[in-house]
């Protein structure tokens, strides 16, 4: 009898606690449709944490569950929309993505894990958005898509999904080194009226609550992310912009050199984690 009362009390406490804060998950692996996702990995030596941790680990059990099954993952609706776009002819050449990439989006397995990356032929560091627009403009004769807009974010999600479970492996040396350095500089620069840097929240304080939010490492391996807050896919640059506005800083433009550099640097902070997109966050 006494034991019973005790466990009921413990259960009640846990329930109350879960409502206020999500306890950080210690699991090292998440399995989605039989595919293993690495949630924790040894950190690359150029960053100041011991372990890199996926943002999934910091979300509530309810939010986590939405990503554990593709039927529950609202991000998959947008992936379906991107499949329609994949097969839709557009532009002066009368082609769709499918006209050239006859192997389907599966042809791009592995690509997301390496982006952003230096592209010798283009002579610059390329993001997924750059590759999509390169094809639209040069191969299809179509208008480029705007970054951080629904069609672009959905196509990024479709192509990212082909690499799900593969380890992020972004190069920090070679011709991209200067840009990576610039990204690191931005990561540690305090901005806005609240005078904070990305590192203040995502390196110094991950794992603790900032009011109602459980701070993660601000990793981008799960992008694009479906957010419950705005019920759509969110690109990396849109997220960076949101974080800057929260500290009352003037964000850099989506697609700007600054955000490109920051994306390269932040992506490299996730080396060793799995490609996870489209992930689900609050």
């Amino acid at each position: 009898m006494k034991k019973f009362t005790l466990s009921a009390a413990v259960a009640a406490t846990i329930a109350i606690f879960a409502g206020a804060a999500s306890a950080e998950s210690n699991s090292a692996v998440l399995t989605i449709d039989g595919q293993e996702i690495t949630l924790r990995a040894a950190a690359p030596d150029y960053i100041d944490v011991d372990e890199v941790i996926s943002g999934w680990s910091f979300r509530t059990a309810e939010t986590q569950a939405l990503q554990m099954d593709d039927f529950d993952n609202p991000g998959m609706i947008f992936v379906d929309q991107a499949i329609d776009d994949w097969n839709t002819v557009d532009g002066s050449e009368g082609k769709s993505c499918a006209s050239c990439h006859t192997g389907g989006p599966e042809e791009f397995a592995g690509l997301r894990a390496e982006l952003p990356r230096w592209d010798e032929a283009q002579g610059k560091v390329m993001n997924m958005e750059d590759y999509i627009n390169l094809s639209r403009v040069e191969h299809m004769g179509a208008e480029p898509w705007k970054w951080a807009k629904p069609r672009m974010d959905a196509m990024v999600a479709l192509i990212s999904l082909q690499s799900r479970g593969m380890p992020i492996n972004v190069a920090v040396d070679g011709p991209a080194a200067d840009m990576w350095e610039a990204g690191r500089e931005l990561y540690y620069t305090r901005v806005g009226q609240l005078d904070m840097a990305c590192s203040n929240c995502h390196e110094d304080n991950y794992g603790v609550m900032i009011r109602a939010d459980h701070l993660s490492q601000g990793q981008i391996n799960g992008f694009p992310t479906y957010r419950l807050k705005n019920a759509k896919l969110n690109s990396t640059h849109a997220r960076f912009s949101g974080c800057m506005k929260n500290i009352r800083a003037q964000p850099f433009a989506v697609g700007s050199d600054e955000f490109r550099a920051l994306e390269l640097y932040v992506a490299s902070r996730g080396n060793g984690l799995s490609v996870e997109g489209p992930s689900v966050r609050n």
Partner: peptide, 21 residues
Amino acid sequence: MMPGFYVDTGFTRVLEKFEGR
């Protein structure tokens, strides 16, 4: 990391509506 609550200068890239405030 605690913000200064009565400071209006010395910041970087302050959002326009908070500039100088």
